[in-house]
Amino acid sequence: MSMVDVQAVRKVYRRDAQEITVLDGIDLQVPEGEFVALMGPSGSGKTTLLNLIAGIDRPSSGKVIVAGTDVAQLSESALAVWRSRNVGFIFQFYNLIPVLSATENVELPLLLTSLGKAERRERALTALKVVGLADRAGHYPRQLSGGQEQRVAIARAIVADPKVLVADEPTGDLDSKSAEEILALLETLNREFKKTIVMVTHDPRAAERAHTQKHLEKGVLKA
């Protein structure tokens, strides 16, 4: 069974009278536990496809079924709940909240659950341990290196135990050493925690770490 099933998806943006087709009839199946790399030149539609899979955007037509749910059919509020339970998002620029410590950043998705404060804190610390940053729990983003920030962002993405991790250029803003550490961490999450990962990247070396590579060009998926 596919964890991600994208069927004949089109995504069209309208600017004034002009229509821009970003995705044109995409079909993509990602089995559970798979690690897929989406590659392609800028403007090919990689991030748009990732956003559709993550449920933060809606297709113009076609279906996006993730973890058994057709996300396009959900209302805005239902989609928010669905995202909190099923998807962990890793951004290129980490996007940590600067006024919150590492633990508090990781704890954010758990604020939407009914967990008590102590349990939220415990789970956040566990997630930080998984990414190897338990000793930086009280540090603020400005006190962390880029690689460490990204690891906190990954801890935030996995703390609610989502089925799917989507990563948009997770190594794009890192030096090669930090990038290597992040990719190793993603591999671990995929291998040991059985997370299905869809990663957008420009970097062929990063893409090599995935099980499968998919190439997009001008909104069309190439074999």
């Binding site: 928010a80 909190s84 909240i97 998705p109």
Partner: peptide
Amino acid sequence: AVLKTLGFPS
């Protein structure tokens, strides 16, 4: 945007 991505309702 991050909060919404994490599942915070609008």
